[in-house]
Design a protein around this nucleic acid. Structure first.
Lengths: 124, 124
DNA sequence: CGGGATCCCTGCGGATACTG
DNA sequence: CAGTATCCGCAGGGATCCCG
């Protein structure tokens, strides 16, 4: 029941404070990071599309989060020097790899959300 | 390449602001939530164990995060009325379900952390 | 040992305004 | 349209003390 689920050496993995994996995990599991990565898993999208899909995000956080994800090599940005400007965002290969792990998570959250949040927790 | 990865109706899923799935996802992907859930996936552990494994966590955040996870029915708390007190935390069935999704994520972060964080991003 | 209660501060993130 | 820049509030979270 509590099999060795964890790739061992995990104690030297995500858990030590200040290790790179913590930082990356924080980027990726950030409030808006998850949402944007999932949205982008459906394919290339424009700034305004993302702004609409990640309902409630501010422009500041959208820019900031996309930049972080881009620096992490998860998102690629293609700007076209036209007027009006057009910028497309998409996942890199590595980003797709990651989103494949994120999507089930979001699906799980979606499935269990109501029964869990509305105190109807079956206990045990 | 950009197949229908998402269970559709996802637009009415995680994305709408204020929906329960957002809340649950936030709990579960919170800075310390992820770490605690992963730590607990290795089996029952005591307060002090968890405090040590989630390096850097404050007592306040440990208590607070555990409470949230308990309210969400993901973690179960067993207190023994002895002196000195002994309290054991473990995952519920639903918690195990979730950790099965979280562990690969952490493993992925661990694997890609260094190459990503140290600007050595191979681009494209 | 396993917390609860307080105080306090910083930095996340929202709102607004401006630009190419 | 797709951002950047700036200001600023407030609550997330750390530190400390205490208690059963």
């Amino acid at each position: 029941m509590r099999a060795a689920l964890l790739p061992m050496a995990f104690d030297d993995g995500v858990f030590p404070a200040g290790c790179p994996s913590r930082t990356l995990l924080d980027h990726v599991t950030s409030k808006w990071g998850v949402l944007l990565l999932i949205a982008l898993s459906e394919g290339e999208q424009r700034w305004s599309d993302l702004r609409r899909r990640a309902e409630g995000i501010s422009e500041k956080m959208l820019a900031q989060t996309l930049k972080t994800l881009e620096r992490d090599g998860l998102v690629s940005r293609k700007a076209q020097p036209v007027i009006p400007p057009r910028v497309d965002y998409s996942l890199t290969d590595r980003g797709y790899e990651l989103s494949a792990l994120l999507v089930p998570l979001a699906a799980w959250a979606f499935d269990h959300a109501e029964e869990i949040i509305n105190g109807a927790v079956p206990a045990k």
